[in-house]
Design a protein around this nucleic acid. Structure first.
Lengths: 217, 217, 217, 217
DNA sequence: AGATAAACGAGACGGTACGTCTAGTCTTCAC
DNA sequence: GTGAAGACTAGACGTACCGTCTCGTTTATCT
């Protein structure tokens, strides 16, 4: 992502130590605000630069594309949110990840309900939807999006499922990385593709189906 | 979809009876070819018109956007493919839909394996990926994409599951429309978002997990 | 003007006897009205056709260009005006042309004053200015404009000057066709090119200078 | 001329100090060449931009219309020609304007003969004819054309006539600005409107008629 | 009176150019 | 010597007309 250095002429890499933190922040803010306000397709680099009070070159110097700017802006936003959340928690509690109360179904349902709520938060919806869309069509960005944003999230589910396996609540022969998709992917698809509305009841049902299957026991 | 008639001056709707079938076909072909060759973002209306040997206005007269052209082109392609498939089948066999051999798991696995193959067919991949991406970010198109392409496919799974319910192979309290997502959505997400590779083994596993759950029985 | 029949395939010449007089009149009216309202450059053949309630082909069938339509429309207008003027005159008076009272200077001044007034009539100004402009840049139309509209007018001056020569009021060695330009062309240039305002005093002065020269006698 | 700033949103005026002289020259050259080669109506802004190797926006940034480009291009050409002529002259001779040998008729005839030759020079004919035509129909451009190109030329005649008045060769009560039209306007009209051919003999005759009148002395 | 054929209103078609917008590069000036 | 400002080349956007080409629908003679 960072900087395109594959091309012919070895562009002298900008000196990152002298980079203006002020501009970086302003660009993130402008990019997120514009995506939220006018949508991703109508968000332009010129627009971001103008809103951030920054020259276009300052954007092209540090990012390779509109999608790249937005990806980093969103990553930054997520980190800030995570940081805030972490700080807000009581100090000695498990810092991050999916809770493990011993009740797998309840834990998954709780987290998925929270995810549903988050997906409906407009501040998150516009940029993450934009990034997801761009990632569908732009494989490089798609992989970056998955690696830096999605996979870390999914890993938390995998960890929880592995813990459940150790507790005997999930069969040992089950691959947690696949199993988690049984409830995560349906939610993702409904949200991304508007195939159907999402709700707490829906995600609860997904967890039940995924844990116990749909055949008679 | 149809025609923009929301704006101020009521543009007289073009006379569809005089529409050039030749141009329509040429536009579909050009649009699909360009999306496959240079990708959706670099496919332009000017490019489609030039390649189709058609005036730009002929495109703007009948479609409202590049996405709209591609959606119809892809629908047309699908219909043609379905038509071909239908014709290729023996006359008395069940014409369309998911086979029902009595073995639900085997039937689902077979269809999903075929889907995996289709998703890897470049002729289908480029346009459907492009449409899916556009649909993520453009709700109107997204809903049209789902309603006209995706949902009819999903309905076939729902039908098969309902038959399985009647045969006692699926619990009666299960909602087929949700249940199908347990194996369809994971595949869709891996394909769309590059979260992980897809394979026949993978979809087989999904069916097994979905049918029997991941908890010990 | 008439009809382009130089090209390869011998387009069957339209049958003028079956031509719709109604359409012809409507086209003339629409053309003149549009030129007066929106100016010549913004007058389009589509616009004329729409306003005249006529198919575009009906225009292309009978005229070769926008300029051609306007030229004929203006000729028609001029003929009608001349006809009206002729009818309005007493029956036995000299029907047409420049009066000959025996006083050359007075006669020329009177006619030029009338011309100044006519040039200021908006109904004449827009189309004649448009035709003159087009004629400057389009030699074929320019020559047609001169031959059919301008030269007949100038001929009247030449006739009056010749009569004056016979009466001994103009030197015998003077070429009337050139002499008339001494007062006609300055007026034409001021009007066409906005080089200076026109007035009755101005044309009176032109006649005086032209008749007696500008050197001391 | 300058820049359109009448519209709603106040488009930020471009910074003239940073203007590319290279582009400006290339645009002038391309515009003049195209007008000479294919004529004014078939000269397009796109064509000028392409030929000049320039983006369309660079033309729209600095000029408001095709006519405006051509006017400035032609002014530039005239200035260059005048500059060249000035440099070519012997240093102590009267730098510019109409010669004053004491023989008014001869001086005027000489200058008009030179003008006839210039009007026949294709390099000047196409653009000046195009500008004149556009000026007939577009008052704003017409006035600019007159003010910046025509009137300065005419002023030279007025100056020479005033000198002749002081020398007693022209009557004191004659208005030089009007008198000059007696020989300038006829030539202009013949050239512009193709009313008749132009020649050295013709302009000589015009001078004779204008100086001495057409009546017997 | 009916047949026949051309002119007609309408408007879709392949095109060209318009004037605007944005991409991404390059240059200038201020801090 | 970085970074804002913005002019530059390039080219797609969506619109407006061009001139050509069908369509059916009048008209208007010619059987």
């Amino acid at each position: 992502m960072a900087r395109n250095q594959s091309a012919g002429r070895p562009v002298p890499a900008p000196d990152a130590t002298r980079r203006s933190e002020r501009s970086r922040r302003a660009i993130y803010d402008a990019a997120l605000a514009l995506v939220a306000e006018v949508g991703y397709p109508k968000t332009t680099i010129e627009g971001i630069a103008a809103r951030a009070g920054v020259g276009k070159q300052t954007i092209y110097r540090w990012w390779s594309s509109k999608a790249d700017v937005l990806l980093e802006a969103f990553l930054d936003l997520s980190e800030q949110a995570a940081e805030t959340a972490r700080r807000a928690q009581a100090d000695d509690r498990p810092a991050y990840g999916i809770p493990d109360t011993g009740d797998l179904a309840a834990d998954l349902k709780a987290v998925l309900r929270a995810t549903v709520d988050e997906l409906r938060d407009p501040a998150f919806e516009a940029p993450s939807r934009a990034l997801a869309a761009e990632g569908v069509v732009n494989e490089e960005l798609g992989r970056a999006f998955v690696a830096r944003l999605l996979e870390p999230q999914l890993q938390l589910y995998a960890d929880r499922l592995r813990a459940a396996q150790e507790a005997g609540d999930v069969r040992a022969d089950v691959d947690p990385r696949i199993a988690l998709e049984l409830f995560v992917s349906p939610l993702a698809q409904r949200w991304l593709q508007y195939t159907a509305p999402i709700s707490h009841e829906y995600t609860d049902t997904l967890v039940d189906y995924a844990l116990h299957g749909i055949t008679p026991r």
